[in-house]
Design a binder for these strands. Sequence first.
DNA 1: CATGGATGTAATGAAAGCTGTTACAGCAAG
DNA 2: CTTGCTGTAACAGCTTTCATTACATCCATG
Lengths: 142, 142
Amino acid sequence: MGANSRLTVATHALTWLALAHRRGQEVLTSDQIAASVNTNPVIIRRSLGDLRRAGLVEVRHGAGAGWRLARAPEEITLLEVLDAVDVEQPFGLHRTEPNLECPVGRGIRPALSKVYGRAEQAMRQELADTSIADVLRETLVG
Amino acid sequence: MGANSRLTVATHALTWLALAHRRGQEVLTSDQIAASVNTNPVIIRRSLGDLRRAGLVEVRHGAGAGWRLARAPEEITLLEVLDAVDVEQPFGLHRTEPNLECPVGRGIRPALSKVYGRAEQAMRQELADTSIADVLRETLVG
DNA sequence: CATGGATGTAATGAAAGCTGTTACAGCAAG
DNA sequence: CTTGCTGTAACAGCTTTCATTACATCCATG
């Protein structure tokens, strides 16, 4: 199926909310966001639901409903977004337990977990250093 | 489906080859490696085929056939293994093209590509700093 | 207080990828 | 030539992602 696009969809939504707010738009509906991302509004509502549970956006119900950022875009990092939308780790361990009678089969899973953990931590640090405001600036420049 | 286990399977095979060689085993067959990984020999042959095309292992055909490392385990990094087995990038961009009439839709893909590129590069650097010899040492300690 | 427009969420289906398995052709040492 | 292993294709089962439909719920507004 390929890598999933959840981080992309969520970041796109947040970036669009940040720009709309700057332009004086109080809130955006899932329909309006879906029109920019070019997907179904339900996909957007699911993504924003994750972000709401993580405290990154707020929702208003009833007439005049819609979404807005819960914080300034400078204070939302892509790492928070990643954790909110629950993207799987890039490297999977063995699908079935390796042969524990082999010294390699016995010890390799903890060994690989350490390496994978370091690699993922390095990746997370880069995302922690990037905010929605950074993405918006780069988006408008390009 | 979850993250795939190709890097794990390939690294396991290489680590087992490194240990076997240290013990005086000239080569290992895909059956022997499959017994340690606990999977089907075809999976191992597919993985080792990728590693062979990348120049990390050598294969011997005919009677007494089998596989061995093409280099010292200290000189095979997990980054080379990753590139050999073609693991997908962790973050996918939009599945369908975003709305180009929206300023965010127009500029966000290059912006995200930059961020994702930095994150992946940080991850790759960690893998580049880890060799099969490192994995073997850590495997036997644990 | 009724209403209309939006959210929240379940259910379903299509498409794609990973792993495992079987089958069989090709190769080379003895 | 025989034997044992590699190299690959083909296929099935499982899982995940995304899209879509449907519908209950919520609440500012008139």
